[in-house]
Nucleic acid binder design. Structure first.
Lengths: 158, 158
DNA sequence: CCCGATATGTTATAATATATCAACCCATGA
DNA sequence: TCATGGGTTGATATATTATAACATATCGGG
């Protein structure tokens, strides 16, 4: 519901619904959502923005959940492997997925002014088609755009 | 001519033709292709693959063109700003552009087996359209795919 | 001649990420 | 029961990528 664009949404509901989805996935797939993993995901969902690994680590550390880089990188590895979190390559930052569970080719819109990152999806399979034409077999994609979000675009015009 | 895919090509000609294009661009636009900048571009063209900044720096350093990180990062900043070199975000590596001068939304195909990176172009303006629909104004894009190139795909099957 | 813009030299440090090895937990099955 | 093996954690160290900051140099135009 709230997966598209820069519109406001019910954030509390969005966090708990995402956590529910992830918990179901984990029990169904027999993988462990351990305290550190769970907390990293919660932090990303609550902040609802792209965060650096060390920003997350600082919060974990304040809560006594570990203070060394491997703690957060392991959690992020787990969460990205299962599609609960995406890495924004352009920012070296991490963002909770807005529709975990469903397989997708996410497309991220990164506002260079307010640093908001919106997740949407590739509107077509053009990349797959183009790659196939060259004999290349795609396993994963990184699709990101940098620019101005609607709000910052208005401010820029004003 | 040789800008698409994983096919072989006349590499000597490709290097000198790219250098010619870049030199013309620089004199026309009154920007300086200084020795370090020129050599970084040559290195990337000659190797014809994505290289880390510190790999390039090691070569520069061996040639007496500077041994500190800012040397190579400044050259790369210049070259990427003018579109002669692209950064491959997924690899934190740099690749000479195969058709400098023309504006384009490059699409990179990264083979996870042989590490070859091919540059092609976005087949459509779907991303622009999708972003516009959300009110987002794109200024630049990062479009990369990781997978298997035709050669490595054959080996994998065999 | 001096000024401002552009580029370089140099030192230091920031920011991001991984390797390695020991220890622990716990479900499974001999 | 208890050995075993997979998955996880703890902890130390280090690798990799990138930038800040400030001094110096070069060069064309006013």
């Amino acid at each position: 519901m709230h997966d598209i664009g820069f519109a406001k949404h019910d954030h509390t509901a969005c966090v708990s619904s995402a956590m529910d989805t992830v918990e179901s996935y984990c029990s169904e797939n027999k993988v462990q959502l351990t305290p550190a993993r769970r907390r990293v995901l919660e932090i990303l969902l609550e902040h609802h923005k792209a965060m650096g690994a060390y920003d997350i680590l600082a919060l974990l550390s304040a809560e006594g959940l570990g203070s060394q880089p491997p703690v957060v990188y392991r959690a992020l590895d787990f969460l990205t492997k299962h599609g609960f979190v995406h890495k924004i390559e352009k920012l070296n930052a991490y963002l909770a997925c807005m529709h975990p569970g469903r397989s997708h080719s996410p497309f991220f819109l990164i506002c260079r002014a307010c640093e908001t990152v919106a997740e949407t999806k590739m509107p077509s399979d053009d990349l797959l088609t183009a790659a196939s034409a060259l004999g290349f077999q795609i396993e994963s994609t990184v699709i990101e755009a940098v620019g101005l979000c609607p709000g910052c675009l208005n401010e820029a015009k004003a």
